[in-house]
């Protein structure tokens, strides 16, 4: 059984349209990508689509009420809302630094939630 699928690569702003042909669960051809990362992306997408997410967490003692955070590694797409729930339970205390681990190994998915903003403690 041949199955064809068309993807939009989300790895970079070029957004290449990539066509794949699979036969009996094996990838037969990948065409349309401008670079190798596109091939890696669709191969992953065919077996286990993954995404990173970015959101905010509450922070105390800083000049602003929120600190932005993101995942440092992609997680399975189906786990996105489970991870959002976990992140929404966390609150931080200033100072916060970029790269600071907010939740290590979130939901056991081998990805850390890290802070993406510098927040000094309020004087």
């Amino acid at each position: 059984m041949l199955s064809k699928r068309t993807f939009t690569c989300i790895v970079c702003p070029n957004g290449c349209t990539i066509e794949t042909v699979c036969a009996d669960g094996a990838v037969k051809s990948v065409t349309g990508q401008k670079c190798k990362r596109g091939e890696e992306y669709v191969t992953q997408e065919l077996i286990d689509p993954r995404r990173t997410i970015a959101t905010t967490v509450k922070v105390h003692g800083a000049p602003w009420p929120l600190c932005s955070v993101r995942l440092n590694r992609a997680i399975p797409k189906k786990d996105i809302f489970r991870v959002m729930d976990a992140i929404n339970k966390v609150e931080l205390q200033a100072p916060v630094h970029i790269g600071q681990v907010v939740i290590a190994n979130v939901c056991g998915l081998d990805s850390d939630v890290i802070a993406t903003k510098e927040l000094p403690a309020k004087e």
């Binding site: 970079c12 702003p13 970015a54 959101t55 932005s68 955070v69 993101r70 970029i98 993406t116 903003k117």
Partner: peptide, 25 residues
């Protein structure tokens, strides 16, 4: 960029996908 918290910034410049605040910092 302070409010653009999603990632995808800096791919051409730093070869790495950063959020807006990280890129600005």
């Amino acid at each position: 960029l302070r409010q653009c918290i999603h990632d995808g910034f800096g791919l051409t410049r730093f070869g790495q996908t950063l959020s807006g605040p990280e890129y600005a910092q």
